[in-house]
């Protein structure tokens, strides 16, 4: 017996709340209430702005990850890829500065390099998966190690730092605001909206879900399976580039520890949001909720002394499992 993938049947009355859809939202609401009770500053503009801005990197990546996972794939390399692109971007901008000066031109060159590198890295993952036919887990485990080593090598084991003057010019891309909303939040929102449209309203999203549900059926339905899967990896790479563009101006540096475990956070956010890890069904808005849940947990733990910081990981893990349990609970028994 398989569960109906979409919402409740129109004709059958439902008394129960549909946790499958509402689970993540309820968890988010509960966290917000909890945060507000624990600390009065939690709902302040400053705190919310901070939390949303720093969720943006994982968020932008997680949107791309949703497509990859929906199409039955996986990408473990995104954290290392982000570190590699950040390092590359810094090197490119530092190198270009003598020629192009401290200004827009240099930053644009850096951004172009980040997007190009992201696209290329994503294509590489995608081609290895589709053309060479290697499992995505193995391909991206491999590239994860490659990118992590490359950034360590580029930085000589230390830290790559953006030129100080360029840093202050580029800084507003992370710290600046439009109408009181910071740039990372705006970019994250734009990426999420575009992702939601592509997933729900465009053939691309439908094709991803079909491939994830059954690659054979998709192939027999003349879906260009390899091309779509390649596109999911390429899009994810590109979004890692976008995330890096938002990340670099924050601290102006990259090192071997940049983007550590981002891949797991992104995957966790996707799954908390209701996307199925084995593919076939994905929800972008769910992913956004998942990202917010993850960063709010960290924020709330930092705002309180109730639990030992040694237990932070346990609490995060517990909440992740709980959030997924809430949405699966209603379907698992069927």
């Amino acid at each position: 017996m398989s569960a109906t993938a979409e919402g409740p049947a129109r004709s059958a009355p439902r008394r129960k709340i549909d946790f499958h859809v509402l689970g993540p939202i309820l968890a988010l609401a509960a966290l917000i209430v909890l945060g507000a009770l624990i600390n009065g500053n939690f709902l302040s503009y400053g705190n919310l702005s901070n939390v949303l801005s720093r969720s943006a990197f994982i968020g932008i990546i997680a949107v791309g990850m949703t497509f990859v996972i929906t199409a039955g794939g996986l990408d473990l390399s995104v954290g290392s890829m982000a570190a590699f692109i950040a390092g590359l971007m810094i090197l490119v901008m530092n190198a270009a500065m003598p020629a192009t000066g401290t200004g827009l031109a240099t930053v644009l060159i850096g951004m172009a390099a980040a997007l190009a590198a992201g696209l290329a890295a994503g294509l590489l993952n995608g081609l290895l998966v589709t053309r060479a036919g290697i499992e995505p887990f193995i391909v991206t485990l491999g590239t994860m190690g490659v990118y992590r080593s490359l950034v360590t090598w580029m930085a000589d084991g230390g830290t790559l730092s953006l030129d100080f003057d360029l840093r202050s010019f580029y800084g507003p891309v992370y710290y600046g605001t439009v109408a009181g909303i910071s740039w990372p939040i705006l970019v994250f929102a734009a990426v999420a909206v575009a992702g939601e449209i592509a997933m729900r309203r465009m053939p691309f999203g439908r094709h991803c879900a079909a491939i994830g549900a059954s690659e054979k059926v998709a192939r027999y339905s003349a879906v260009e399976v390899d091309r779509v899967r390649l596109a999911t990896y390429a899009a994810l790479g590109l979004l890692v580039g976008v995330a890096t563009i938002m990340y670099v101006p924050r601290l102006g540096s990259a090192s071997a520890s940049t983007g550590l475990l981002w891949e797991l956070e992104a995957i966790a956010a996707v799954i908390i949001g209701g996307t199925v890890l084995k593919g076939g069904s994905g929800r972008i808005w769910g992913t956004v909720v998942g990202v917010l849940i993850l960063s709010l947990i960290g924020n709330i733990l930092n705002l309180t002394d109730v639990v030992s910081p040694y237990l932070n990981g346990a609490i995060q893990g517990g909440i992740i499992i709980l959030a997924v349990l809430m949405q699966r609970g209603s379907t698992a028994r069927e």
Binding site: N39, F42, R54, L251, S257, T258, N302, L303, D305, N312
Partner: peptide, 23 residues
């Protein structure tokens, strides 16, 4: 008044400090 682990990591320290400042 506050003590948290930043794991000898720039990004973690940034996050922890932002939250200290809120708190």
């Amino acid at each position: 008044i506050g003590m948290e682990h930043g794991n000898w990591n720039r990004d973690d320290a940034f996050t922890v400090m932002q939250d200290f400042l809120s708190r």
